[in-house]
Amino acid sequence: MGWFKRLKDGIQTATRNKKEAPEGLWYKCKRCKETSTMKELRENSYKCPHCNYHVRIGSYDYFDLIFDGNFDLMFEEFRSKDHLNFVDLKSYPERLASAYKKTGLTDAITVAQGKVNRRPLVIAAMDFQFIGGSMGSVVGERIARAIDHCRETRTPFMIISKTGGARMMESAFSLMQMAKTSAKLSTLAKAGVPYFSFMTDPTTGGVTASFAMLGDINFAEPEALIGFAGPRVIKETIKKDLPEGFQTSEFVLENGFLDFIVDRKDLKDRISDLLQLFEK
């Protein structure tokens, strides 16, 4: 008891609350079941030291991994709104309240600007912990504003996707964010400002079918689930078992929809290389 659990509850560090990376002293790998210390895990870019499993982490963890120290948050002022009075088993405001409490985040995407080996970059990173990383109006608006900012300042833009897709509680508004973000990206492309799309586990649904697949460069973490329809839906539709490795990053790379897969320890260097190459 207690070995793999956080013993002290309610550690009040604002940023730490916002991190998805596991806490405590020990980490037991979800895949190989081997145990390592949290320190080893952290020093290994939140990958299992035994099997290289990329543990799911959050937006702030990625900012720490990619930016040179400091970064500034952008467009934090937007909050989701229950325009449809949506109620399923829970009401949408209840779902939002518990998401705010659980994550300390203000929505399923966080935008920050910072430097990567002294080169500027704006990153919009999604958090799966916030209602499944779902895309609603706030996600769309933050991306749209980030694109405008990047176009006006000619700063390269990157989105880190981690999502189950659209936010059902915003129904058609959520669907329209696919059109909105894609239309905005078309202006960035026209202006010749590079956009990098980085897909992490999982990237599915309406997000994959809009901004995630539209990068000038599309890349992903190893073994991430990437697809349009979720595996369960496909299985139910075709009533057959799915082949091994279906919808993994490696599968998507093999089928020609990714430029490369990057190990998390090389992530910053690779982004830095891209920024340097796209500079001229």
Partner: peptide, 18 residues
Amino acid sequence: GIEAEERGQSEAIARNLI
């Protein structure tokens, strides 16, 4: 479907949007 995923259902839709 499986083949739809192999041939990039999401890329096809995203490409149309942009």
